[in-house]
């Protein structure tokens, strides 16, 4: 997993609440057995007018010329709800997003992001509203600093909280399976004490 410390990038505002993982990556693209090849299908039904993905929908925010190269997704509340498909954050990452900022995330989606090295930033609703307003008024490049746990815009700085272990894993690109395998003795101790039915 890539290490994440600080990122400066262009924000693209996706001002919709309850964006579910079916929207992020529709089911017809889930038949791959690899972790790659999902970026081109990100937000397929909203991004393309045709089923083959040849014709861009000019109305969709990701297709607007000014947002090309955006690496920070500013999203509505309850982002990533629904299906547990990790294909959703894989698609977002492959498209080029390193950070997603929202007032709330669905639990499984949040964990999936941490596990693949996307930083999900939770900010209060008022801060999100301000960021949306500013992003709509003009292009906004911001700095997201995981070490300091801050989001810096041209006019303000917002602090965010993240669980210490999540922060540690992202900062150091920790192989979480390897980390747990170092504790195998503790797992064995637990297993030895389990009741027979368990």
């Amino acid at each position: 997993m890539e290490k994440f410390n600080q990122h400066h990038g262009l924000v693209v505002p996706l001002d919709t609440a309850n964006v579910d993982t079916d929207q992020i990556i529709p089911k017809q693209f889930l038949q791959k057995t690899t972790r790659t090849g999902f970026g081109q299908h990100l937000f397929h039904d909203r991004r393309y007018l045709d089923n083959l993905g040849n014709e861009n929908n000019p109305e969709f925010v990701l297709n607007k010329p000014q947002y090309q190269g955006a690496s920070i997704l500013l999203a509505g509340e309850n982002f990533g709800c629904g299906s547990s498909r990790e294909h959703a954050p894989w698609a977002l990452q492959e498209y080029g997003f390193l950070v997603i900022i929202a007032s709330s995330f669905a639990d499984i989606f949040y964990a999936n992001c941490i596990n693949i090295g996307i930083l999900p930033v939770i900010l209060p609703e008022e801060a999100i509203a301000t960021l949306f307003q500013q992003s709509k008024e003009g292009l906004q490049h911001i700095t997201v600093d995981l070490v300091a746990s801050t989001v810096k815009t041209a006019s303000a700085q917002y602090d965010f909280t993240i669980a210490p272990f999540h922060k540690y894993c992202l900062e150091n690109g920790v192989d979480s399976v390897g980390w747990t395998l170092n504790k195998i003795a503790k797992i064995e101790d637990y297993e030895a004490k389990m009741p027979a039915w368990q």
């Binding site: 972790r35 547990s84 498909r85 499984i108 964990a111 999936n112 596990n115 693949i116 979480s176």
Partner: peptide, 10 residues
């Protein structure tokens, strides 16, 4: 509860 594929691996 449901989990993602990285967690399946874990």
């Amino acid at each position: 509860f449901g989990i993602g594929t990285s967690e399946v691996e874990h």
